[in-house]
Nucleic acid binder design. Structure first.
Lengths: 173, 173
DNA sequence: CGCCGTCTGTAATGCTATAACGTATGCTAC
DNA sequence: GTAGCATACGTTATAGCATTACAGACGGCG
């Protein structure tokens, strides 16, 4: 049976399902469950963490189960991979796009706070444009870019440092 | 005994050694050898590939040998890590900086051709500035950014596709 | 029905990175 | 000189991330 998620997540899942359907792709129960786990997590989550959680509803799950499903979700633009963390995070923009929307790839940038570990997703057009421009000057046409910045978030710059653990971040909401 | 490298690489190694000395860091024989291997390779190289090559001059080398040394070289700005490839590449700018130069971190961007696999390093100020600006608007101060774009290089856009193997790229020059 | 493509299960393996502990060497202070 | 300390490196084991390869299940379609 399908897993249960927060109201917000269930809503995003329904939108994602509509988007997939419109594209002729199937958001199967497995895919829906995994996407739900990712969307419900408060921060980027590793593949094996997801596997552990997935096993609570699917006993037989194994690494390929997760990686295959992640590949699908990445292709559909419903999640992102954060390279520096080897972790995956939901893409609200991808899940709420108009079902008719053409491209499923949109440029994102991630800001990772080295103090509290929190990750923020930006979708800044200037960044993508300037990067594309610079690449073009080098004779290069970009299809897809990874932009991940490490630094301090506004909270951690102004308050005494306190690093949250991954577990704290993961289950919050 | 120290390993032997191309003329160009030996020259870069000498410069790197001067830079380290100026900073009070020691470019030991191990570190020099590994940096030489990285600089001599024609493309980003994985840690275990480097380990294999390193063993030709150091029988006892093991993963920590390599990773510790890579950490040192990264700290000194003599190499970069390409996240998308889990691989390491020499930084000519880092190896040729003025020994008096202050910061050893300079922003770099990588362009990875998905057809031929070649990687180009850019150091575009606009990209760093626009990214820093966008982050600031989100209340974030960047210390360090990963920018890696995938796409097609000028050659691969104009000629029939022909993907080189990692091995071909690695030993070229 | 028989074929084919997609999705998932299962076992094994490979690649990337780190932990933990030991040894050697060189520097500084006394 | 030697005690104390820091740095560099050796060695063994293990943790963490990802893929290969093959098999079964299921649905659509000629």
């Amino acid at each position: 049976m399908p897993a249960e998620f927060s109201r917000r997540t269930e809503h995003l899942l329904d939108r994602a399902e509509a988007i997939c359907q419109h594209r002729g792709a199937k958001l199967t129960e497995l895919r829906r469950d995994l996407l739900g786990l990712i969307l419900d997590a408060a921060s980027p989550t590793g593949a094996y963490d997801l596997l552990d959680r997935l096993r609570q509803s699917r006993r037989g799950a194994a690494p390929p189960t997760v990686y295959r499903t992640l590949d699908f979700l990445l292709e559909q633009g419903l999640i992102h991979r954060v390279e520096r963390l080897s972790a995956f995070v939901g893409c609200v923009a991808g899940c709420t796009a108009e079902p008719g929307g053409d491209s499923h790839t949109h440029a994102a940038q991630f800001l990772i706070c080295r103090e509290c570990g929190r990750v923020v997703e930006m979708q800044d057009h200037n960044v993508s444009m300037v990067l594309a421009r610079a690449a073009k000057d080098a004779g290069f046409s970009i299809t897809n870019a990874t932009v991940e910045a490490e630094g301090l978030c506004s909270t951690c710059r102004t308050t005494p440092a306190r690093r949250t653990t991954p577990a704290e971040r993961t289950r919050a909401h």
